[in-house]
Design a protein around this nucleic acid. Structure first.
Lengths: 333, 333
DNA sequence: CTGTTAGCGCTTTCAT
DNA sequence: ATGAAAGCGCTAACAG
């Protein structure tokens, strides 16, 4: 059986109160007492029971990070930053995956709301509307990561997707490309990411006097395979595009591979720009131009926002914009 | 304030015991009572307090997954499988990163041993010896993932690294390569991964009557950048190798990129084989030949082993070998 | 400065 | 079939 405060107290000939004080480093303890307690503590190899402590204090120091899939590089890198920063703040991170499936997301929210030890939740949703998420907010602080999926009463941390996409496309235009295709996601209401990026794309096209509507290829997800398939289709078009704006780096990677297979040279025949700036993109052939969100900044802002909300559950929702940057590499010529 | 069992009991005019029974789906409850309790439950929107429940039961249903870095694709993919399988078993996963730093690993073990919620720990260590880890095993079940770092009393799940490496190199030899270089890690005692893979490399070389000792390039870690630097050096050698066996796919990716920059054609001038078979490797140019460990198999075996150990803390340590497979693609010609 | 004690919310033994 | 009550191990309010 585990050693408890009582055991230590008994051994040291003091009360549990005193032991607790020593364990928690309180002031005002007689040096002699402290020494005696310390000795007992070590001799018995006491380890505090965190569950009991949390029950008492009503806080666990655990936050939950919900994201589509941890094996997708962007989310892996984001999770890394979150774990990193949270750890430095004395918080541990639990991870759950939604698979990007709206049903599963709702279910997760329900179970999180119903029963959980987590102090708060960071939710990186793909398909869910803010309204769906609001169900959780009554129970536990929740911070939304990524796209703002709707006018909502929740805290939200992310980059300005429309502007980022606009800059990426403006860059292609600057490089002399005119037949630019956007690639990725559904562009529909359920997929805020693609909606915003598409909007930025259109904005840039319009600003340059190009046709904003024409060239958009949907994909069922943001993975390499999907992009490869889409590119195969795109290359059948009567007028071939001269540039590709992919809504994720993984899509871009799939596109690069397929373009290579089809003998289309990048960037000469086709410029390619990605989004997320995952580690692998720096090393692809050709190296990928991409929008780099400040992932560490997102993580820090999100964890901080959550911590703030723990102290002030009633404060009004904050909208936090994190910087991004377009990293130009070989693929955009 | 949160709704407790007492509140519900009072409302329904029964005892907390009865409410608890209803909540936990026990048998032998008068239908009328059950209905009344159900109504109260819903009306008050009761949510069980998991912390209290855990305190009482002595189990949290949380396991901790410790790995070097979640943003490294292999670990991201492994974590994905772990989260996936654990979730299906009703377990939540906490993630902590060691950064591959032995000091940090020890510190993590200490803090895990000292105070923690987790029922058990899955530890994917790079640099730690089994002995270091044993400190935890007294407190909480621990399963080692990846390399068996030492003769140890702990459960261990992984693939046969020596044999996997041997097969990878044998494949290169079969393809007619003779000057094969191994690349990655330190090969030293603190890095079991590279030690085993190096051993497999040497075994294959020896079996083919080739010089097993000559060609080994150390790297400080398993990342792309390090491989690029190593390859730059390797290309200076008087007799250039005709094949590269990289101890991770990320290393291989860095190598591919550098070889491309230096005008070395893969696989014609240099064949490349990786290890881990991360998603990106299927799409690189050229597509990478790699050793694919059964990640889902590892995850399942590891979680199961942990769960078993919870029930039977005294059972003797199990050594679980998970299958792997060499996936041949373009890079090995 | 330190001892006593009342819970945190839940499960579960012991009654009935 | 259900109630009463004893804790799980800890912190903190209340004494002294």
């Amino acid at each position: 059986m585990a050693v408890t405060l009582r055991d230590v107290a008994q051994k040291a000939g003091v009360s549990v109160r005193t032991v607790s004080n020593v364990v928690n480093g309180f002031q005002h303890i007689a040096p002699a007492t402290r020494a005696r307690v310390q000795a007992a503590l070590e001799e018995l190899d006491y380890r505090p029971n965190l569950v009991a402590r949390s029950l008492r204090q009503g806080r666990t120091g655990i936050i939950m990070l919900v994201l589509p899939e941890i094996n997708v590089s962007y989310f892996g890198e984001l999770a890394h930053e979150v774990v990193d920063y949270a750890t430095s703040a004395g918080i541990t991170v639990q991870i759950d995956e939604s698979g990007g499936d709206p049903e599963r997301e709702k279910q997760l929210i329900t179970s999180l709301a119903q029963a959980s030890w987590v102090d708060g939740v960071l939710f990186s949703s793909l398909g869910l509307r803010g309204v769906d998420l609001a169900g959780l907010s009554g129970t536990r602080p929740l911070v939304l990561l990524g796209e703002r999926t709707a006018r909502t009463t929740l805290d939200h941390v992310g980059i300005d997707n429309v502007e980022a996409a606009r800059q990426a496309v403006a860059h292609l235009i600057e490089r002399g490309r005119t037949r630019i295709a956007a690639l990725g996601g559904s562009g529909g209401a359920r997929d805020a990411t693609s909606r915003y990026r598409l909007k930025g794309f259109q904005k840039a096209m319009q600003a340059a006097g190009l046709d904003p509507a024409g060239l958009y290829l949907r994909t069922p997800d943001y993975r390499r395979t999907s992009a490869a398939a889409a590119v195969r289709e795109l290359l059948q078009w009567p007028e071939r595009p001269d540039a590709l704006f992919c809504f994720s780096d993984e899509l871009a990677a799939g596109a690069l591979r397929e373009l290579h297979d089809q003998g289309v040279r990048v960037p000469r025949d086709m410029a390619v720009v990605g989004f997320d700036d995952i580690e692998a993109s720096r090393f692809s052939v050709p190296a990928l131009t991409s929008v780099r969100p400040d992932k560490a900044g997102i993580a820090k802002a999100a964890v901080d926002a959550l911590l703030n909300r723990l102290d002030d559950p009633q404060g009004k929702p904050r909208e936090i914009d994190v910087p991004f940057e377009l990293v130009v590499r070989e693929s955009s010529g």
